[in-house]
Write a protein that binds this DNA or RNA. Structure first.
Lengths: 337, 337
DNA sequence: GCGGGTTACTAACGCGAGTTACTAATACCA
DNA sequence: TGGTATTAGTAACTCGCGTTAGTAACCCGC
């Protein structure tokens, strides 16, 4: 910048004024053009580090994800979510820093990110249920957006409407005539997504006057293999379900294998609905009916909300819930009985 | 830092010396302990922005990915790769910035990242074949590591050994007695990965004395659906192959569908080998024989190489090729004829 | 031809560190 | 006792920018 100033025959201050379009500064057009021209000639690029120090902003936002992210690696969700976030924030000249949170570190490692002024805000995916650090940072006015967190806090958050999605799926099975409907969750019920999906399942049953039978509800744990045993257990019941709502397509893969291993047919003997609409869902045999999650849009919402918070435009306690969509394929059929 | 200095009754310089363990500075242990103690009491955290400006380093590394990344979204590769990179670089206090490259912008957007001192180095995934900007940045001594690039340049790069992986896969089919082996690529042959895998295919054929038949070689394009038509075309040949090596598991899914649509059986009528070992590969029917890519290790290698380059420890022209692994499942069988 | 207002700038400080060059006080030795 | 090393520090500069306060030069009207 000093070079530009010298070459254009003005002070550094003037160059700064011109390049930043500072208002109320009487600079004649001749000078302005001359400075802009020499800046172009010298291919001047502002030093972001100095700019950060002067303005106090880093123009960086961190996406904090769990290290052992079975949730993430299961499908294209992470990639799409990230695409959504970067799409929004890079348009405003922010950048995304990916930060792998230690799975069970005593002291959270992401607090340092904002306390050392490495990033301006935190996008935290699937925070631990009772993470005190998050609440502390929030009270310190750190811009924070949560994803996949329970709704108990007033910290801004985005998520997919898990309850509504599950409700839709189970409601669909009920409409097909099924009355005995099992459920295998995507994850242990301590996770917000699992318990919300269970809620939707229960709500649909209740609305249809079907009593809740806890022997029909079992927990999966992210992976396909975690769906195998629960499904076998359901099939071994004296009065097995005619349909099962699985809280995750990956887990449903294991369930399908279990069904095949028993010689039962999908959907003739048992209807199956998954959740997520992973890429493979349309290539299973038969193609899997499932609930689509708008991962890209979720990323956009998260990024957008973060920018609003940083600009101070956001109301406290904002929670954005994106609707899901039922994708009917061929793993579901009218209840035969 | 000034606060610490004042409270400990020393100058800021002394604090800086102590906290940074600067050698050859005669500071008695009493003073040292006192300063460290007050730093702890004040919960002092260095301001990364100021530190960056002073040292000239940003401690940030950018991962540049294509915006329209069918390659990335196809499976868990991206997530695993990123985990690998962050695992390595965060241990050295570096952070990873994800940057979505405009698909076909006139001027590359990632050059700015390093020219404005936002990041210290560039990890570029699947760069365009003739990206002049990359070469320019490299000549400017920017730390760069390429992934998924052709080997024609002396820019440091990491990749999986595509040629060897393809060779292994085709060699396996040949060992099973197949002589008429088709190939559907993972992407257009302008991509380095596709042409390398084709090379491996050719090498295996040549070694076995099987003449190359160009009617048996067709191009896929990342997605499952792109595998459908090529497979139909192979099946419609007057003398169809008894085995097909598909350069991507996703593409293989489409191929399997095509095979089923013709009423042919896998592997009895046609053996199939994929590439990538996506999560879903073991749940196809039948489970897919494929070539596993070590995505996590690839990420670690990339991060490690980047750190070495930044430290000036790397020899120019370093190219790291990680071996693949053949995963035999049930989509391949001895040639019946 | 003198005061007041505008125009067109610039000097200087601050952001929070790293770093160099220098000094005052003490210790040691002859 | 005088001279020299060593010890224990510090003042001041730098990094590249934003920003505030201030100032010369000119114009206008009376």
């Amino acid at each position: 910048m000093a070079d530009v100033a010298k070459l254009a025959g003005v002070s550094r201050t003037t160059v700064s004024f011109i390049l930043n379009n500072v208002p109320d500064t009487n600079i004649p057009d001749a000078t302005r053009q001359r400075v802009l021209q020499t800046a172009r000639e010298l291919n001047y690029m502002p030093n972001a580090q100095a700019l950060n120090l002067a303005t106090g902003k880093t123009m960086m936002i961190a996406l904090v994800v769990r290290q052992t992210s079975e949730q993430m690696s299961g499908d294209a969700f992470a990639g799409e979510f990230i695409r959504g976030v970067t799409g929004v924030i890079e348009a405003e000249n922010y950048h995304l820093v990916i930060h792998a949170a230690e799975p069970d570190a005593r002291e959270s490692t992401y607090g340092k990110l904002v306390r050392t002024h490495k990033v301006d805000g935190l996008l935290i995916s699937s925070p631990l249920v009772n993470d005190q650090e998050v609440k502390l940072l929030y009270r310190e006015e750190t811009p924070i957006v949560l994803h996949g967190a329970p709704d108990t806090q007033d910290i801004p958050s985005v998520d997919v409407d898990n309850r509504q999605g599950a409700y839709m799926a189970v409601r669909y099975l009920i409409d097909l005539g099924h009355r005995r409907i099992g459920h295998i969750s995507n994850a242990p019920f301590s996770y917000a997504s699992s318990s919300d999906r269970l809620d939707g399942y229960c709500q649909a049953l209740e609305e249809a006057g079907i009593p809740y039978d806890e022997s029909l509800v079992l927990a999966g744990e992210f992976t396909a293999s975690s769906g195998y045993e629960p499904m076998r257990a359901l099939l071994d019941l004296p009065n097995p379900p005619t349909a099962v709502f699985v809280g995750s397509d990956m887990v449903a893969l294991g369930a399908m294998e279990a069904i095949r291993s028993r010689g039962a047919r999908i959907p003739e003997d048992i209807s199956l609905v998954g959740f997520d609409d992973i890429l493979y869902a349309r290539y299973t045999m038969p193609p899997l009916t499932t609930v689509r999650i708008p991962a890209y849009e979720l990323g956009r919402s998260a990024g957008d909300l973060m920018l609003k918070i940083i600009r101070g435009e956001s109301l406290p306690g904002t929670r954005i819930l994106l609707p899901t969509e039922l994708v009917v394929r061929r793993s579901t059929i009218k209840c035969p009985a």
